[in-house]
Design a protein around this nucleic acid. Structure first.
Length: 822
RNA sequence: GCCGCUGUGGCGAAAUUGGCAGACGCAAGAGACUUAAAAUCUCUCGACGGGCAACUGUCGUACCGGUUCAAUUCCGGUCAGCGGCACCA
């Protein structure tokens, strides 16, 4: 053992050792309990940042801890390596996306991640842009196509003019592109979709089973899925007799309908305005609304506007004739694209009716307000008693909801329905660097999937990147032109690629058998390792990746490939790394480069600081001085072990040393660190407990050390070394070796505390008078409550504050506290 | 608007079942060592007040109120910040 802690030497040495001896290679082993620990894999942008360091440090502590607890731990790493930045780099710097991506991966793996000393089984590395991986994206696509879960339709989609591609709903934030913040446009295009809505009900219901997920994430998923129950009712267009269906959750207000509103995109619009004098006015209005971009269109503060179509429809409940309007706030994508308007009981409809002087009719009377259409200042949305509603009058509106729904179904006027906010997942991307969609369009046979035996559809490498016009794939004749797998005739390939979120929707299954080449994964291996026991990553994926991955898992289950419903049993969403109160970013100039920290302090210090400064789920404020503190701590540990190394090494650990302060502290620390890790991964308090133990060791040895004390010191050093191993693994290996430890500490058993050792001989009793602390008593452990009470009442401080009064009541909490009430 | 989370010293934070508020660390101050500095070690460190001093009194966990012998913790209300959803019928 060197006199000084030379982190560079220590870290290089043990990293080489782990690699050469294959310490972290794992295989299925039925004799051990398994544990699958996974961190969200990175996009190979070129450099890791502090967020990665934090994420992987957390996962590494969990993995190393579970390993020491005897689990067979799967802890893999890979690359989410398709995506736009590679293509943009190609356009900007003239370097091929493949070259750019693979070079970034090599650099990040060999020069950055490996320096962090993470306990990955690198043999299981998964890289999504390699055909050995993406061919299975295509395979899943075909399976889904065969089951009607992948389909193509013409629809209005989100178009990012800067990325030159379509975006899924989940990828639009406040009307802006999630990646580049450009204003998203509305564009009508034929696109491929995955039918995630087929699983909406289960995705929602299973949220209740995900007890290991943060409530926040579940709420976000529930909101996103957005279930509403109500009824669909068919109104009849007076002039044509066509059915115009509406969806409502407020069927109790059906008798209050005074007009209807439909979306500008509604397919029935043309037939409604046919031959009407206002037809051209309506068309102009529709044209104007539809030309607006997504942000403007969905802005809540946008003025609600509409025009009368000239058509009327019949309300089937009371056979009344109501005018049909087109309104800018009605969405074609939700419900039926047409709504009934009840101004008395819906604020939006109320404002619309006031603006265009449409009638208002109260159908739910408020007991206190005595509502009248003429005097209302706003819509009344609360509960009340039914009025103007025929046979339903006098019922409460909550009763009427069921009764009216029954009535609608019995009279065949419509049916009960459930609507979800969740839309199908648009996966077509008009870009190059992604998985080609395995579809062929034949003039005779129509849309034909590529045969499984012809997979993969390789992404051609010899393409040009101009940054102009369509995707390079669409321009490449040799790729586009092909023959039909069914008839052998002339055909063309689909040139869109898949959303890269498809790649990350099943990579956790691939890790179980990453070299499998006959199937996406080996079912037996997946049966052993899945589900993921602990998943760790950023909150930004709360509805994107995490929802898609849940969907894919259910599809894969239904394909008979996996016996489980959910991919991730426990989820930890770690906070951001911030500096000076803001997220680290180049534009703010507050970025701390991991390479710099690793060179100056080493990975063990970087890991220790990032785990100590805040609990994992909270944001971490980066502090240069805090890093110094972690560095000092390691030096402090090193120094005390070095000082006593010669003397302690030949000594056996203490079997039992009751009454010895350090011995007790050692066992208390084992207990605390273990509990802190088990309880929600409170690494910050676990590390503070280690610091306390070290402080105690300094105290213990401050006046030199006797031979009799050596076994206790040995016990403390051994425990400290084992307990610190998941946090600062290279450091721990070196200490372990210096104390004569065999093999790698990564495989050593986690220490257990001895309950006997932490039993105190004395106890400190807090004595309160009227709830205020007035004194403390030190009594032998196990003193009976009545003796504790007597001792408290004799205490001079207590007597002073009792002020000669008799106690009204004395509360004794065993072993803790006495409260005298006077 | 609806839903959720958070609010504790100069700073990051801790307090696990209602029982000593501020563990641990950072910063700051003092001392030891040193020719000196760095490093290291030791001590002090919520606010206000009293005492030469060891010590000691009051207040204090965003704010107001409640329950309780006892509240950072439970309940009701208010404010502030953050996040999600939002013209979803």
């Amino acid at each position: 053992m060197d006199e000084r802690y030379d982190f560079k030497k220590v870290e290089e040495r043990w990293q080489r050792f782990w690699q050469e001896s294959g310490t972290f290679k794992v295989t299925e082993d039925a004799s051990k309990p398994k544990y699958y620990c996974l961190e969200m894999f990175p996009y190979p942008s070129g450099r890791i940042h502090m967020g990665h360091v934090r994420n992987y440090a957390i996962g590494d502590v969990v993995s190393r801890y579970k390993r020491m607890r005897g689990f067979n731990v799967l802890h893999p790493m890979g690359w989410d390596s398709f995506g736009l930045p590679a293509e943009n780099a190609a356009i900007k710097h003239g370097i091929h996306p493949q070259k750019w991506t693979l070079e970034n991966i090599a650099f990040m793996r060999d020069k950055q991640l490996k320096r962090l000393g993470l306990s990955y089984d690198w043999d299981r590395e998964v890289t999504t842009c390699l055909e050995e991986y993406y061919r299975w994206n295509q395979w899943f696509f075909i399976k889904m196509y065969e089951r009607g879960l992948a389909y193509k339709k013409l629809s209005y989609v989100n178009w990012c003019p800067s990325c030159n591609t379509v975006l899924a709903n989940e990828q639009v934030e406040d009307g802006l592109c999630w990646r580049c913040s450009s204003i998203v446009q509305h564009k009508e295009l034929e696109q491929w979709f995955f039918k995630i809505t087929a699983y909406a009900e289960e995705l929602l219901a299973n949220c209740d089973k995900l007890t290991g997920w943060p409530e926040r994430v579940l709420t976000m998923q529930r909101n996103w899925i957005g279930k509403s129950t109500g009824v669909e009712v068919d109104f009849t267009v007076e002039s044509t007799g066509e059915k115009l269906a509406i969806f409502t959750t407020r069927q109790d207000t059906l008798f209050g309908v005074t007009f209807m509103s439909i979306a500008p995109e509604h397919p029935m619009l043309e037939s409604l305005i046919q031959g009407k004098p206002q037809a051209n006015l309506v068309r102009a209005f529709v044209q104007r609304v539809m030309s607006e971009d997504k942000a403007t269109r969905t802005d809540e503060n946008q003025e609600k506007e509409g025009v009368f179509t000239g058509a009327y429809a019949i309300n089937p409940l009371n056979n009344e004739k109501v005018p049909v309007w087109v309104a800018n706030f009605v969405l074609m994508e939700y419900g039926t694209g047409a709504i009934m308007s009840v101004p008395a009981h819906d604020q939006r409809d109320f404002e619309f009716a006031k603006k265009y002087t449409l009638p208002i009719r109260v159908v739910i009377q408020d007991a206190e307000k005595n509502l009248a259409a003429e005097t209302m200042q706003q819509a009344s949305v609360g509960n009340g008693v039914m009025a103007n509603s025929g046979i339903f009058d006098k019922l409460t509106n909550t009763e009427a909801k069921d009764k009216i729904a029954d009535h609608v179904e019995q009279e065949k006027l419509g049916k009960r329905t459930v609507n979800f906010r969740l839309r199908d997942w648009g996966i077509s991307r008009q870009r190059y660097w992604g998985t080609p969609i395995p579809i062929i369009y034949c003039e005779k046979c129509g849309t034909v999937p590529v045969s499984e035996k012809d997979l993969p559809v390789r992404l051609p490498v010899d393409v040009e990147f101009t940054g102009q016009g369509r995707s390079p794939l669409a321009e490449l004749t040799s790729f586009r032109e092909t023959t039909c797998p069914t008839c052998g005739g002339k055909a063309r390939r689909e040139t869109d690629t898949m959303d890269t979120f498809v790649d990350s929707s099943w990579y956790f299954l691939r890790y179980c058998s990453p070299k499998e080449d006959k199937a996406p994964f080996d079912k037996k291996a997946v049966g052993y390792w899945m589900s993921v026991d602990q998943y760790i990553g950023g909150i930004e994926h709360a509805v994107l990746h995490l929802l898609y991955a849940r969907f894919f898992t259910k599809v894969i289950r239904d394909l008979g490939l996996f016996d489980g419903d959910e991919p991730f049993l426990n989820l930890l969403t770690q906070g951001m790394v911030i500096k000076d109160g803001a997220k680290m970013s180049k534009s703010k100039g507050n970025v701390v480069d991991p390479d710099f920290i690793l060179s100056k302090y080493g990975t063990d210090t970087a890991r220790l600081f990032s785990l100590f400064a805040a609990p994992p789920e909270r944001d971490l404020e980066w502090s240069d001085q805090g890093v110094d503190g972690a560095y000092r701590f390691l030096h402090r540990v090193w120094a005390i072990v070095y000082k006593h190394n010669e003397a302690v090494k030949p000594v056996k650990p203490a079997g039992e040393a009751r009454g010895d302060k350090l011995y007790r502290k050692t066992h208390l620390t084992i207990k605390k660190v273990t509990e802190d890790i088990e309880r929600e991964f409170h690494f910050n308090t676990a590390i503070s407990a280690l610091m306390e133990l070290v402080n105690e060791m300094y105290d213990y040895t401050s006046n030199g050390i006797t031979d009799a004390q050596l076994p206790v010191l040995r016990t403390a050093i051994d425990a400290l070394t084992l307990l610190i191993a998941p946090f600062a693994p290279h450091f721990a290996e070196e200490l372990w070796e210096s104390m004569g430890g065999k093999g790698t500490i990564a495989n050593a058993a986690w220490p257990q505390h001895d309950p006997e050792a932490i039993v105190a001989t004395e106890m400190t009793i807090v004595v309160q008078v009227n709830g205020k602390v007035r004194s403390k008593l030190t009594l032998p452990a196990g003193t009976p409550d009545k003796d504790v009470e007597a001792a408290a009442l004799l205490d001079p401080k207590v007597r002073e504050f009792m002020n000669n009064k008799l106690p009204k009541k004395v509360i004794v909490v065993q072993g803790k506290l006495v409260n005298v009430v006077v």
